[in-house]
């Protein structure tokens, strides 16, 4: 099976602390892969290395076989890697609609047009409204993003990512901090993305049911190292995972504040 993104012996350390340690994984194209691990396992740091927010101290990141280790976030985004952030990262003082519209504008490569009115690109607005509709945020589209609830901001994050229409989507705990009523809607959205055959999704998630339900493949990180990789069945039956992760997660919870997540 063809891989879309892979890492070779990927490591990064901050001072003396090794956050990601020699991780070699292959993420298969058009599959749904989840990354799990206790808090502080290095999941978000690993994402930052994939999307270019961080440079590794060692190792390589390959995208479609090409070495992108030294490429910037912008270049990676243009190559087709999109991500959502665990800590909500939107444009606060502009409207929800405009947040999504900007992502579409980037995708459509409208970068230096300064003479036309932005409403000239009617299709952008229409598409933005459609996307907001899928993430159940349409009735909030005229609000400033800063006025959204936490859950709504998460939805906006996903909407922006969908707008970029990238081949590879990195979703960093999309349901974190959402109220229970909001989770099913987002699950639906993610399910829809999964069904799109030309998309590869990598998900960081704590909700095990969700992970088991959605994933084709699961990667388990523990203390920055790769503990296991396999399909949900294999992971559930893996003894190392059971002893280390499921047993360790309780310990992990206590140390989570100082984690790299």
């Amino acid at each position: 099976m063809e891989s879309i993104i892979e890492t070779e012996n990927l490591s990064v350390s901050f001072g003396g602390h090794i956050a990601v340690n020699g991780v070699t994984v292959e993420i298969v194209k058009n599959q749904f892969t989840s990354i799990i691990g206790p808090n502080g396992a290095g999941k978000t740091t690993f994402f930052n290395l994939l999307s270019g927010q961080l440079s590794p101290t060692e190792g390589k990141v390959l995208y479609k076989g090409k070495d992108i280790t030294r490429k910037s976030t912008i270049e990676r985004s243009r190559m087709g890697i999109g991500r959502s952030f665990q800590i909500t990262n939107v444009f606060p003082n502009i409207t929800v609609l405009e947040n999504v519209r900007l992502a579409i504008q980037s995708r459509e490569n409208v970068r230096f047009q300064m003479f036309r009115h932005f409403t000239h690109y009617k299709a952008f607005k229409e598409e933005a409204i459609n996307i907001l509709d899928t993430v159940l945020l349409k009735d909030r589209m005229d609000s400033l993003a800063v006025n959204l609830s936490h859950g709504e901001k998460r939805k906006l994050e996903i909407a922006m990512l969908l707008a970029l229409n990238t081949e590879l989507l990195l979703l960093d705990e999309p349901t974190a901090g959402m109220s229970l009523e909001e989770v099913p809607a987002i699950l639906d959205v993610i399910q829809n993305i999964k069904e799109d055959e030309n998309r590869t999704v990598v998900l960081i998630e704590h909700k095990m049911e969700m992970v088991l339900d959605l994933s084709d493949e699961i990667i388990v990180l523990y203390n920055g190292e790769l503990l296991a990789q396999g399909n949900p069945q294999e992971i559930m039956e893996n003894e190392t995972v059971q002893t280390a992760y499921i047993g360790g997660s309780q310990n992990g919870e206590h140390t989570s504040e100082v984690g790299t997540n």
Partner: peptide, 22 residues
């Protein structure tokens, strides 16, 4: 109010995010 102007405002709001949009 042009597409470029909208990017300027986005830069004011959140530079890092503008970059991750590409």
């Amino acid at each position: 109010e042009s597409p470029l102007g909208k990017i300027l405002v986005a830069i004011r709001e959140n530079e890092g995010r503008v970059e991750s949009l590409g």
